[in-house]
Design a protein around this nucleic acid. Structure first.
Lengths: 228, 228
DNA sequence: ACGTCGATCTCGAAC
DNA sequence: GTTCGAGGTCGACGT
């Protein structure tokens, strides 16, 4: 539905939007999107689960979309409707995204040599309480603990700081010598500087490589289900 | 535009989406949204600035939206079109969001007593280089430096850790006694524990209060322009 | 329910 | 140009 409208929001914050022509989308799950003629993001919205109220008053169409938890209300007033259509869409298509950060971790656990020839993973995820969650902890051939921070995108300073914190937190709990490795497709210049200053390491891990490892694992799994 | 389609994306990641009925939105700035019948977020999209290519092949309509920097491509194949409409929307309406974190800072600078009766702001923003940016630094009636970390939402542990870092960084540069205050609508349980353990403080600052301060300031400003 | 973290995050500002 | 932090972030997962 599109037309000339005015929007106000009250909830986690408050906002107002003056008169103008926009596209309004209301989905069957009770989510709402108000799109201006430009930009990827909706100017106003409401997540799924809204309760609606529609009424006409003073030659204006008012649509109210309210949500509890958190309590927030979106009000849309139309004084002219350019276009209206309702569709019932049936969509059973599968969506799949390849090589997320999660996938990288799985790939590294499946093929630890992605991180280093002598790397042996010990635990993965949620090991530390206070400082956060380490992606992977392992050890090398010299018995040193290896803390691995995985990034899907070129790792920046923030990744190094994260690794620092993890190293520090792990250091509190062990006497073993420590190594910190960032596993990512690449490293930004600044992160490189920080990294070497801190005595940490970088191991380039390409998405393609991960994809191949996972694909291989998938076919292996399948072949277990359908043995020759 | 809506219809039965199939989508594939290749770029920062890769994804495929099987056949199904969706809503496709193409905006004048070259942004693309593919919406499934449910959910707030588009299942596939492309930010503004795409180059398009449309062609019909084997009874299918193919829309290609490509973007450089980063290099990524979205391909949409329609085998049935349910609905198509093009609109030229003119939208000059002003959008304003009240009480952002920025607004909270402005409100606190305008009404320092929001942080404490004896709080006097000295500087705001970008004071520290290494550890980041402190929201506000001030002093109290006893001459202690007060570092204020502002959060718009209930402050969690991360806010406390941030404040810790700032305190530490400020401590390196001065001999004056220090106080650290988190100014936010509320504080999570865990953050509370961390906070008291670290000897830091919490000052509840409601969005509504900030809103009122800013509104007051606005009317004051206006009255200066239009004096009696 | 709350807290934490990733995201094809997007977006804007600062450097 | 890149980097960095905020977002009514959203959504997922774990507690």
């Amino acid at each position: 539905m599109s037309g000339n409208c005015q929007v106000s929001y009250e909830g986690r914050a408050s906002s107002t939007l003056g008169w103008g022509e926009r596209l309004l989308i209301i989905k069957t799950d009770g989510s709402v999107l108000v799109h201006r003629p430009e930009g990827y993001e909706p100017v106003n919205w409401q997540p799924a689960g809204c309760v609606f109220q529609v009424e006409v008053e003073d030659e204006e169409l008012r649509i109210r979309a309210a949500r509890l938890q958190p309590r927030e209300v979106l009000n849309i007033f139309f004084n002219r409707v350019l276009h209206l259509s309702t569709l019932t869409l049936t969509d059973e298509g599968d969506f799949s995204l390849y090589v997320s950060e999660q996938d990288m971790k799985r790939a590294i656990l499946l093929a630890p040599k992605l991180v280093g020839e002598d790397f042996r993973p010990l635990t993965s995820e949620k090991e530390l309480g206070a400082a956060g969650f380490v992606d992977v902890v392992g050890e090398d051939s010299e018995g040193r603990l290896v803390v691995v921070e995985i990034k899907r995108n070129p790792a920046g300073r923030e990744a190094v700081r994260q690794l620092q914190r993890y190293i520090k937190a792990v250091g509190m709990r062990t006497e073993r010598p420590l190594r910190g490795i960032i596993a990512a497709p690449s490293l930004t210049r600044e992160a490189q500087a920080l990294l070497s200053r801190e005595g940490l390491e970088f191991k380039p891990v390409s998405l393609k490589r991960c994809y191949e490892v996972l694909k291989f694992e998938k076919t292996r799994k399948l072949s277990e289900f359908f043995p020759e």
